[in-house]
Amino acid sequence: MKRSILLPLTIFFVWIGVILWWTGGFRHFTSYSYAMYRAGTPPRNMPDLKMVDYDQKNIDFNRWKGKYILVDFMYLHCSSVCGILRSRLYDYQKELAPYLKKNLVMVSVSFDPQRDTTTILKETWRSLGAEPNWIFASLKGTNEEIINEMYKFGIVIIKTPEGDFNHTTMHYLINPDGKLIKVIDPSSGKDKTLHEITKWIQ
């Protein structure tokens, strides 16, 4: 019996096409990677994030225009990776002290405003040395609004049934003009991360 290969070949190439499109050219298989790909490669504009700091002041990134801003997104009730990243940032602030006096601000932003109140943010800031140029703030809005806003930024936040969040863990470097210029992966190690930061802000 003569077998037709047209239909199976068509289905094969259709699936290849679907997976090629779905993964952004076979490069972005995870939600984290795809979100960053969709947000665009730096340099790019920053979304307009509305936050409130530990002094209960409404702020946004324009407040620090003219300085480099090192941003990380976290939540204080995290039972896994955020604590490790926070202690790394505590180490970085010592190494980055000359820059923090001059042209750098560190901003740790919580995407869990319901639990990370301004009081808790301030207590955390104090426990980490109360560096005046390391700001703790939380995003404004409901969980759903924040998750949607963060996705546009390239950050995936997913609430687990236990009430925790699985989320992207990157550092974001914004230049004095307010553009996102570098996304830094902290899992590359302390020295490499510091090098990535300092090579831009010198």
Partner: peptide, 19 residues
């Protein structure tokens, strides 16, 4: 053949972490 490739493509798609 078509049904097999369709099944295989479907399984591959749903094995992608994002899916």
């Amino acid at each position: 053949s078509s049904a097999l490739i369709f099944l295989f493509g479907s399984q591959t798609f749903w094995m992608i972490p994002r899916s």
